[in-house]
Simulated assay, not measured.
Amino acid sequence: MINILLFAHLQEAIGQSELKVDLADMTVGQIKEWMENQYPQLSLQHMMTAINEEFATDTMIARAGDTIAFIPPISGG
């Protein structure tokens, strides 16, 4: 199992801030694709991603017990 954290509009889109899913040993890119299939209202292809609080690329593999965070672009002024 892995833990997926969602923030801002991603959280609002699915009504949850956290998911526990059995997607261990998949790449970040594969997890994004799975998420978009499960929740078609999400678009994660341009989101920054972190595994265990360290930025991750789409080719990195999530292991059992990892926490993945999808981080929307930040804007401000």
Rank of each mutant, 00 (worst) to 15 (best):
N3G: 00
N3T: 15
I4H: 02
L5R: 14
L6M: 01
F7W: 03
A8W: 02
H9K: 05
L10T: 02
Q11M: 11
E12N: 09
E12F: 02
I14E: 02
I14W: 01
I14H: 00
Q16A: 12
L19E: 08
K20V: 13
V21W: 11
V21Y: 02
D22H: 12
D22W: 04
D22E: 15
L23I: 04
L23Y: 14
L23V: 04
A24F: 04
D25Q: 14
D25N: 15
D25S: 13
D25G: 01
D25M: 07
M26D: 06
M26V: 00
T27Q: 10
V28M: 12
W34T: 13
W34Y: 14
W34H: 14
E36R: 06
E36Y: 06
N37K: 15
Q38R: 06
Y39M: 00
Y39V: 00
P40T: 02
Q41S: 06
Q41M: 04
Q41D: 03
Q41H: 01
L42P: 00
L42S: 01
S43R: 09
S43L: 07
S43D: 12
L44K: 04
L44R: 05
L44M: 07
Q45G: 14
H46Y: 13
M47E: 12
M47A: 07
M47T: 06
M48A: 13
T49E: 02
T49F: 03
T49K: 05
A50Y: 06
A50V: 06
A50Q: 05
I51E: 09
I51P: 10
I51Y: 10
N52R: 09
E53K: 14
E53V: 07
F55D: 05
A56R: 10
A56K: 10
T57L: 11
T57Q: 13
T57A: 13
T59R: 13
T59D: 14
M60W: 08
M60P: 02
M60V: 09
I61F: 05
A62S: 12
A62D: 05
A62N: 05
R63T: 11
R63F: 08
A64M: 07
A64Y: 05
A64E: 14
G65D: 09
G65A: 09
G65F: 10
T67L: 08
I68N: 07
I68M: 15
F70Y: 15
F70R: 06
F70P: 03
I71F: 04
P72A: 03
P73R: 11
I74M: 15
G76R: 13
G77N: 11
G77Q: 10
